[in-house]
């Protein structure tokens, strides 16, 4: 068991490395990943301010922008990543090697997460300083737990997407685009999720809760700003726990399907076939 875990760890850290190296070698990303997203945050925050909305609404926008960064990372850098790896010829080498593919995917997730945490932290810090949003969570521990569960379930979903996109999509970016815009609305990126229930039907936000970003943001907003949530916090936390385990298990299952189909059909892993 120990050698298997050791190989998993080595593979994960090795695959994390290119993303971390990229962060240090392309420093301009800090501008595009922090300053540019702040423009829409500033615009929306000012809209709420002119409407004399409670200051928590500005906090909701800032948190939404920070958390959406993780969603974009999951879609573009993790979900579509096996697709890019296939095109560059690396996927074949990963399947050929003795390291488990889950270790490679975990490395991709960890690399993406490291970079996005910097972006999210920059957005939160700038937003809080610019708009003087009070940060008084009911419990820092609870907030940390919700954030952790949201990340595990969100990146678990991303790891599952990675195989699903390669299995069913020949043009990964179309699928990514399809998932990007509606999610901004369904997750309540710039407004409380209860507002979506009032605007449409309870079934829409209820369905959206199956996206970890929705449940995570709604729960974090309740802890951070004591705002009204769509679902009670004590339902959302276990839901995130279940999704964390579920999506990781599903990711493993889809990876197995991917490898089996790749072998049977003679494509998916090899770019020219």
């Amino acid at each position: 068991m120990r050698p298997a875990l050791e190989l998993f760890w080595k593979a994960m850290m090795a695959r994390t490395y290119p993303r971390v190296a990229w962060m240090f070698r392309h420093r301009t990303w800090l501008i595009q990943e922090t300053l540019l997203p702040m423009l829409s945050v500033i615009a929306l925050a000012n809209v709420y301010r002119w409407m004399h909305a409670p200051v928590q609404y500005i906090g909701i926008v800032i948190l939404g922008a920070a958390m959406t960064a993780f969603w974009l990372n999951v879609l573009w850098s993790l979900g579509a990543h096996l697709y890019w790896e296939r095109d560059s010829g690396n996927l074949e080498l990963y399947i050929l090697c003795p390291a488990p593919m889950m270790g490679i995917l975990a490395g991709m997730a960890l690399g993406g997460l490291t970079m996005t945490i910097v972006r999210a932290a920059a957005i939160v810090t700038t937003g809080v300083l610019l708009f003087d949003v009070p940060l008084e969570p009911t419990s820092w521990w609870l907030l940390g737990l919700i954030f952790l569960l949201t990340m595990v379930s969100l990146y678990g979903l991303g790891m599952m997407f990675a195989s699903v996109f390669l299995l069913f999509g020949r043009e990964a970016w179309h699928t990514v685009n399809l998932l990007q815009e509606p999610i901004y609305l369904m997750t309540g990126m710039n407004f409380p999720l209860v507002a979506l229930e009032k605007m449409t039907h309870w079934a829409i936000p209820a369905a959206a809760l199956l996206i970890p970003l929705t449940a995570g943001m709604d729960a974090m907003r309740q802890v951070l700003f004591r705002s009204e949530g769509f679902l009670n916090l004590w339902y959302e936390v276990p839901l995130l726990g279940v999704m964390s385990v579920g999506f990781i298990l599903l990711a493993k299952r889809f990876l197995d399907v991917l490898e089996r189909k790749a072998k049977e059909e003679g494509k998916l892993t090899v770019k020219w076939q």
């Binding site: 190989l7 080595k10 090795a14 695959r15 490395y17 190296a21 080498l93 390291a99």
Partner: peptide, 12 residues
């Protein structure tokens, strides 16, 4: 060197 390191590590 880094590429070769990466592809060696996935072999343990």
């Amino acid at each position: 060197r880094e590429n070769l390191w990466l592809f060696s590590r996935i072999y343990g």
